[in-house]
Design a binder for these strands. Structure first.
Ligand SMILES: [Zn+2]
Ligand SMILES: [Zn+2]
Ligand SMILES: [Zn+2]
Ligand SMILES: [Zn+2]
Lengths: 128, 128
DNA sequence: GTTGCCTTCGTTATGATATAACATTACGGT
DNA sequence: ACCGTAATGTTATATCATAACGAAGGCAAC
């Protein structure tokens, strides 16, 4: 598979600099001066990055985060997301795969698992 | 809280008749002749129905399903979704809540949990 | 009853997310 | 150089969701 192109790297760098998930259009805004001019370029980069496990999509936010763990390669993380401050913390738990297999049954071929937990983080609760 | 209005019931009935998740615009298409004329009416109905646990949103599909279980009230189901045929099967597993609590930690207030499993169901695999 | 208030519902417009379709360029193999 | 393929750029469009405002309905105080 081809290496990362310059668009891909710009998108990845942008995500790594953010402590929150960014939408494709957030990324576009932050890279427009650099080189990216249209949504499709961002989406193409995101797709490539996601295939390699460098970026994850947070479904319920329509947004993307850089994987917090560079060495891992592809994996199936979950996310804990604060609705107030928007921070998304990636985690893994082996029990998730077992739950998924039990739910899907032996003849279902699992391709992806999305587990997202929403609520209020401790600092935000204290502040409120 | 107010009872279901006629729009709400039309939306719920439409979802119950479908064996797959429907987008808000799918619902709109199927109810336009009845009474619903604009997306916002569908979204308002869906919001009310979701609050009562009568429908669930499937995040990664941007779509909605009628709850398979009428008596339950509010609960936290997961979904097993076939990418080929689009069927979404609702399930529950108590282990999910424990995984979520462990991941979120004691000071995070969990509000919602979304667990969605994507892949190919047995009939679709056999057909392919 | 009618006035004022609040909630629901309808209508129009717009914002936000994502992809289709096609042109252009980059690049390796011959 | 020539071709075929993959990557990138460009324009347009499809899809999903909400803002803003007004009309209609219910309910209590007067
Ligand atoms: Zn990761
Ligand atoms: Zn927070
Ligand atoms: Zn349910
Ligand atoms: Zn299937």
């Amino acid at each position: 598979m081809a290496n990362l192109g310059s668009n891909d790297q710009r998108v990845l760098t942008t995500l790594k600099k953010s402590n929150k998930p960014l939408s494709a259009y957030d990324i576009l805004d932050r890279t427009r001066s650099a080189a990216l001019k249209a949504p499709v370029q961002v989406y193409r980069a995101l797709q490539k990055l996601e295939k390699r496990g460098l970026v994850h999509r947070v479904e319920a936010l329509n947004a993307f985060v850089a994987c917090c763990d560079d060495h891992h390669g592809l994996h199936r993380p979950g996310f804990v997301v604060c609705r107030d401050c928007g921070v998304a913390r990636e985690f893994e738990d082996k029990r998730v795969a077992r739950v998924a297999e039990d739910a899907a049954g032996p003849d279902f071929l699992i391709e992806t698992i999305s587990l997202e937990i929403y609520g209020r983080c401790a600092p935000c609760r204290a502040a409120a």
